[in-house]
């Protein structure tokens, strides 16, 4: 382990959250929980990204009082990237949820393995 683990605690938390979301995605049987895990994973990445821009003692990048020096504001790039990312994540979760609704309407269950078993049975008969 390197020296910066405790200085970078925000990023460490993001890494742990990423792992938890990933585990949810693999382990949960319920589709809704899988989607929540996906969302957790995404927001962990955004937290990871946003930590990059933060600089202690500087303020948000909105020009106030005509001050335009680098010393006054944090790095605006990560904020912009995360903004883009949030849009992506909300569209993806809407799509996943609508897929869930369609699957439930047809098979009345949320377990993906059960659904595939049912499909196989359906085709045999």
């Amino acid at each position: 382990m390197g020296a910066n683990l405790f200085v970078n605690y925000g990023e460490a938390v993001a890494a742990v959250l990423f792992g938890i979301g990933f585990g949810n995605l693999l382990l949960q049987k319920n589709l809704i929980k899988k989607i929540i895990g996906l969302n957790i994973m995404d927001s962990a990445v955004y937290l990871f990204l946003a930590e990059k821009g933060y600089i202690i003692g500087r303020t948000a990048p909105i020009v106030t009082g005509g001050v335009q020096s680098v010393e006054a504001y944090i790095n605006p790039i990560p904020s912009g990237l995360v903004l883009t990312g949030i849009v992506v994540s909300v569209s993806v979760s809407a799509l996943m949820l609508s897929l869930t609704i369609r699957l439930y309407r047809r098979y009345h269950t949320l377990d993906l393995d059960q659904i595939s078993l049912m499909i196989k049975k359906e085709e045999e008969t």
Binding site: M1, G2, N4, L5, N8, F18, I55
Partner: peptide, 17 residues
């Protein structure tokens, strides 16, 4: 995965500077 990510994080440049 978590261990690897934490391991990487510990070598990243310090946040806030």
């Amino acid at each position: 995965l978590i261990y690897l990510l934490l391991f990487t994080v510990s070598y990243l440049p310090p946040v806030g500077t």
